[in-house]
């Protein structure tokens, strides 16, 4: 069935709630209003106010409550409207939930899901457009996934809810309205940590995630480049095997990230590949990122800020031609030395 990504999320949440009465939802305006992005539309009607709860603007309170509830028999799914708002609740996730299993000698599991919308592209400005996955990826004990399409949102949401550990599900906001075929059902539930080969090719391996998966597909088409495009899906723990196998075949690695160059998640992919596969590589590794600036507001600036199909096409063509790492646009065009 064709669904928008937001509908695929509703559908995944509903299927999990039907199959497991301990799944509950918490978040701001998720019940009565069906969610600020309509990702819980209709769920209050079906499951009632005990299981679908509107919260006050108290992210630390309700995220922490989800931690406690998850330790004692519930599977809460918390909605953080914009990833930035997790800032006021990070302690509960990073310092509490992530350590419960460890500090209880395995007596406690926190099967909790925190969903957050991320990313730029809709003009929300610098305090509502970051991806910030690195806030949570360097914390052992947490799992982190990013969805990239209606189908991946359905699959990953159901899998995250089933997972016995705390999982952060990141949802690129710009994709909520994307519409494509979605297969639903229990067979879509899988293990987290498995990447998806979005496109198969020969000349290089592209690792992408979230909204950069589509950007990678369009960029390779534009440049006429034959590439494996790996939708990483899970950032912690990430799927080394799929990436290594592809790099073994192609000998070239390009990572496309919607995050500032400095401290971006691509660094760890690049470092693992160079450490383990140095002799398989035909060229240096490439990272296509955003510049090291806050997300700017206007359409022109924001579109330029994001990795674009044009920038990807340009980088890939030059890279394949010269074997060198092309300078990013902000260096080429003289904005940064």
């Amino acid at each position: 069935m064709k669904m928008r990504m937001r509908e695929a999320i509703v559908s995944a949440l509903a299927d999990e709630m039907r199959s497991d009465p301990t799944v509950i939802l918490l978040g701001e305006d998720i019940a009565g209003a069906g969610g600020p992005f309509k990702t819980s539309d209709g769920l209050l009607d079906e499951f009632g106010p005990m299981r679908v709860r509107d919260t006050p603007i108290s992210e630390m309170g309700f995220t922490g409550a989800a931690v406690g509830a998850s330790a004692l028999g519930l599977r809460p799914v918390v909605e953080i409207m914009f990833m930035e708002f997790l800032g006021v609740a990070l302690d509960q996730l990073v310092t509490e939930a992530a350590k419960f299993r460890y500090l209880s000698a395995g007596q406690i599991s926190c099967p909790l899901v925190v969903r957050a919308s991320i990313g730029a592209g809709l003009g929300f400005g610098s305090q509502h457009s970051q991806t910030l996955e690195n806030w949570v990826t360097s914390t052992p004990g947490l799992k982190v996934v990013t969805v990239s399409s209606p189908q991946s949102a359905y699959d990953l949401m159901r899998s995250a809810i089933r997972d016995p550990d705390p999982v952060i599900v990141l949802e690129p906001r710009v994709l909520y309205a994307d519409r494509s075929e979605v297969e639903t059902g229990d067979h879509r539930i899988g293990k987290l940590g498995v990447a998806h080969l979005a496109q198969i090719g020969e000349d290089l391996t592209i690792v992408a995630m979230g909204q950069t998966v589509n950007i990678a597909v369009r960029g390779t088409q534009q440049a006429g480049v034959s590439a494996d495009i790996i939708d990483l899906r899970t950032l912690a723990p990430w799927d080394r095997e799929t990436v290594f196998n592809s790099v073994k075949k192609t000998g070239r690695l390009v990572v496309i990230e919607e995050a500032p160059e400095s401290g971006g998640w691509g660094s760890q992919i690049v470092s693992a590949v160079t450490e383990n596969q140095f002799r398989d590589l035909k060229s240096p590794t490439v990272r296509i990122t955003t510049p090291n600036v806050p997300v700017p507001y206007g359409k022109k600036l924001e579109s330029k800020f994001l990795p674009s199909p044009d920038e990807v096409a340009h980088t890939l063509s030059e890279f394949l031609e010269t074997g060198n790492v092309p300078a990013p646009w902000w260096v080429r065009e003289g904005y940064v030395q």
Binding site: G125, S126, H128, G298
Partner: peptide
């Protein structure tokens, strides 16, 4: 309106 005559040169927007 995101123009450079704005108070933060158009990079902030309506909320900033």
């Amino acid at each position: 309106m995101g123009k450079d005559v704005g108070c933060t040169d158009g990079v902030g927007g309506s909320m900033h």
